[in-house]
Design a protein around this nucleic acid. Structure first.
Lengths: 114, 114
DNA sequence: TTTGACTCTGTGGTGCACCCTATCCTTTAA
DNA sequence: TTAAAGGATAGGGTGCACCACAGAGTCAAA
């Protein structure tokens, strides 16, 4: 069982983020001491925390992660992952388009200058 | 000379955005009627408005555009455009990396499930 | 002249995912 | 025992680029 600071260092999620995730019902402590409200995390919490961190880095929003965490069978997870992959691909295409436009602007923009 | 609504439709920048840009000293009206404070825009304003809109779509921030508009020779412009192109390329690389991580996660994640 | 459309300023709100601060209580090591 | 370290809660702040709204004044067509 880890207290919040230790768990924070373990997972890379800040203490504020951990409390925020709890508030969002995304990740709750494994146990809360009634006498002082201290949060205690365990290895199950760790697994979930790492999952959440990965999902965030994949571009998932808090709401999307809530939807994933809500069903314990994780059936939504794979769907979400494929969506995110698709989204990354779309954004790559958009950025390539933007690059083309910048290049075009550099070329034709020269005329209007001087 | 166009009043703000007409100019807004002409350029695609909302009236609020036009007033905001003026406040930011990014784009001022060509003429302001002292008696009623109405803004009037002309073709020079139009040229600049279109430029700003393009720069925004290239991922430039307000601050960066200010830097461009501050020097009338537009010497910063080309530098900024190349920076933005580079940035788009970097972000594409990052997104490709994310896609790899998602794919990797889908593959190895299967083990942990069930 | 009236009326509806337009303009102005100033101020506050938005979204997202946190971060920070103050204040208070509890634990822990010396 | 004491003092530092660490925990809690509540509420406000952040950044960015706007958007929305209230309240007041102004213009333009019928």
């Amino acid at each position: 069982m880890y207290k919040i600071s230790e768990f924070s260092e373990l997972t890379g999620l800040s203490k504020e983020t951990l409390r925020y995730y709890e508030q969002q019902q995304l990740l709750e402590a494994a146990f809360v001491d009634d006498s002082n409200n201290y949060r205690y995390y365990d290895d199950g919490s760790y697994f979930l925390a790492i999952l959440l961190q990965k999902l965030r880095s994949f571009g998932c929003t808090i709401q999307e992660m809530k939807d994933v965490m809500r069903d314990e069978s994780f059936t939504n997870l794979e769907v979400l992952l494929h969506q995110k992959k698709e989204r990354q691909n779309m954004e790559i295409t958009q950025k390539q388009q933007t690059i083309h436009e910048i290049e075009e602007f550099i070329r034709t923009g020269q005329e209007g200058e001087t």
